[in-house]
Write a protein that binds this DNA or RNA. Sequence first.
DNA 1: GTGATTGCAAATCTTTTGCACTAAA
DNA 2: TTTAGTGCAAAAGATTTGCAATCAC
Lengths: 139, 139
Amino acid sequence: MTTTRPYSHIIERLRGVGLRPTRQRLALAKMLFEGSDRHVTAEILHGESCANGISVSLATVYNTLNQFTAAGLLREIVVDGDRSYFDTNTSDHHHFYHAQNRQLEDINGGDVVLQKIPPAPEGTAVSRIDVIVRLENIQ
Amino acid sequence: MTTTRPYSHIIERLRGVGLRPTRQRLALAKMLFEGSDRHVTAEILHGESCANGISVSLATVYNTLNQFTAAGLLREIVVDGDRSYFDTNTSDHHHFYHAQNRQLEDINGGDVVLQKIPPAPEGTAVSRIDVIVRLENIQ
DNA sequence: GTGATTGCAAATCTTTTGCACTAAA
DNA sequence: TTTAGTGCAAAAGATTTGCAATCAC
């Protein structure tokens, strides 16, 4: 996978959210959405692009991840103040965070259930609930 | 509150976790632990110190917050990739995050109950579970 | 005294931005 | 064409670090 073939369904998807299917957006979208769900950082995605011979600047990777997130194609997960993670799974779900290797993992659908959602304070509404189960390795 | 009186219970508390009760640690500890529970950023705590006429460098505030956290006196909360929050309430509890003003608020004890804790993956153990309920303002 | 702590400034790291250049429509 | 998108380098923030000066014991 070293060339950039324009897959029509990805082009559609980008167009669908009002983003021009440029060479770099297509390349990034393919890496993100072609396989199974993933959790990436800008750094990781940029590294992959380079490895695949796709020339995209780190700034463009950041911009693209933010645009994809704003468009609802990705979801940003905050687990570590040091870096941002982006999740290709935008459905309602929660995460394990492996502190040891700084890796995110989806928690299976029904494995986290909130028995009770707290009432939102006056004048506010819940926009999203994140559950993060932090893990440590057993030696 | 412009002077730094050495309250013995705070001194004890610092000594208890192996930290020398220096002028700046005492001043910061007083601001943190004297009143009711709070959620602070380094920036905020430094601002308060200055306002109270206590000269502490921002670097020392960061170092102190990290030392307090490592010692179990504080708990770090990650809700926003841009800044770290420290919570003086180290007991098991969860948070509302007001996106609009970037403010954290504790959720009352029983208002979040996990019906089911997912099984930790092979070789790992749960070290902590964070539930963050993100709020937006109703216009 | 002596070793821990602090302050400052510089370094680091992640992320954003300004602007000239390039590409999509 | 015309406007959106890109690359690069520089800027911006938050946080950490190195080291000489200072403080607690």
